[in-house]
Simulated assay, not measured.
Amino acid sequence: MADLATLDELKGRLDWTLDADEERIATTALEDASDLARAHAGRDWPTAASAPRLARTLVLKACRRYMNNPSGYTQSRAGDETLGWSDDQGENAGTVYFSADEIELLEGLGGRKRGLTSVEVTAWNSRIPRGPAGLVPTQGGAPFPLFAHEEEPW
């Protein structure tokens, strides 16, 4: 599948001109970010034009973050050459990744909703008897009041 953003779009978001190695890295970062975006959204957008603009923006944002710090450094020092990594990003340090907010946006673009859902479950080919609101059917007796009914509170 095609990347959701182009190399030229990514170059427009960077503060420097890419050399040949950086262009190769940026191309693979665009591919990785596009695959991740599709996975989080649960959608297969075959082309960049078929993807929502926000999805393309999030791919470019993740790639820009990666290109600015491909090794995942959290500190650097010129004198005595000190470099530091942090476990804050965990397995995402030094890779293309989406933040939790970006993942939530991608899930929303794909129609996925987080949260608790109540689903009615029944046996195959069965029918649920419907009675008056607030009353539960019983086996051979009068309906049982499960919760307060506006007309007949208990």
Rank of each mutant, 00 (worst) to 15 (best):
A78I: 08
L83P: 00
I103S: 02
N68I: 02
G79P: 00
S50N: 06
E23P: 01
L14A: 06
L58S: 03
D32I: 00
L83I: 13
E23V: 01
D101Q: 09
T47W: 05
S71E: 13
Y66Q: 06
L146V: 10
R114S: 14
T122S: 14
G115V: 10
L116Y: 08
T6V: 06
W45F: 10
A5K: 02
T95W: 04
K113I: 01
G111N: 05
G141L: 10
L116T: 13
F144R: 12
G131V: 15
W154Y: 06
G42L: 12
G12S: 15
L83K: 06
G90D: 12
F147P: 00
E91D: 13
P129G: 10
T117N: 06
G12F: 02
A142V: 08
D32N: 13
L109G: 01
D21G: 01
E23G: 02
N125E: 13
S71V: 07
I103W: 00
D88R: 14
E151L: 15
A41W: 00
V96N: 04
L30V: 09
A26S: 05
Y66A: 08
L18P: 01
G94D: 05
R127F: 09
T17R: 03
Y73H: 14
S50T: 15
S71Y: 11
D19K: 10
R114P: 00
T17D: 12
D15H: 00
T138N: 06
E104L: 03
W16V: 07
S118R: 13
R38V: 06
P70Y: 11
L14H: 00
D87G: 10
R13Y: 02
E102P: 01
Q139Y: 07
G134R: 07
L60S: 11
